[in-house]
Simulated assay, not measured.
Amino acid sequence: MTLSDLPNSRSVVVDGNTLDLADASSKPRCRRAICSKSFSGLSLKKDLTPIRAAAASKVDAEAEATQGLYVTLGAGQAMKYIEKERQAQMVTEDPNVNPALVPMVAIDAERYGDSLLDAAAVILTMAQYWRVIGPVIEDRRMSAKDRIAAATTPAEIEAAAIVDWSIAQ
Rank of each mutant, 00 (worst) to 15 (best):
V14E: 11
E85I: 00
Q77A: 12
K58M: 11
E93D: 12
A55K: 00
A55Q: 04
P7F: 11
I82F: 04
V91R: 00
D118I: 03
R141T: 05
V59W: 06
A65C: 13
T125D: 06
T152S: 10
S57A: 14
V163Q: 05
S38R: 12
A88L: 03
L69G: 14
F39T: 05
G74A: 03
L117Q: 12
P135E: 12
Q169M: 13
K45E: 14
E156N: 00
V105Y: 00
P99M: 06
Y112N: 10
I148G: 00
R29V: 10
V132K: 14
S43Q: 11
V122R: 10
S38Q: 13
Y112E: 13
G16Y: 00
L117C: 02
E138F: 08
A78W: 11
A53E: 15
W165G: 02
S26Q: 14
R52C: 05
A109R: 01
N8Q: 13
S166C: 06
Q89T: 14
D47H: 05
L73A: 03
L117M: 08
E156Q: 15
Q169D: 11
R86M: 06
I157T: 00
A168D: 09
I167W: 06
G113F: 03
V12N: 02
L69Q: 14
Q89W: 02
R52F: 06
D94E: 08
L42N: 10
M142S: 09
A119C: 00
A106Q: 06
A161Y: 02
S38E: 11
S115L: 01
G41H: 12
S26F: 12
D139W: 05
L44H: 13
L21H: 03
M1Q: 06
Q87E: 15
R31S: 12
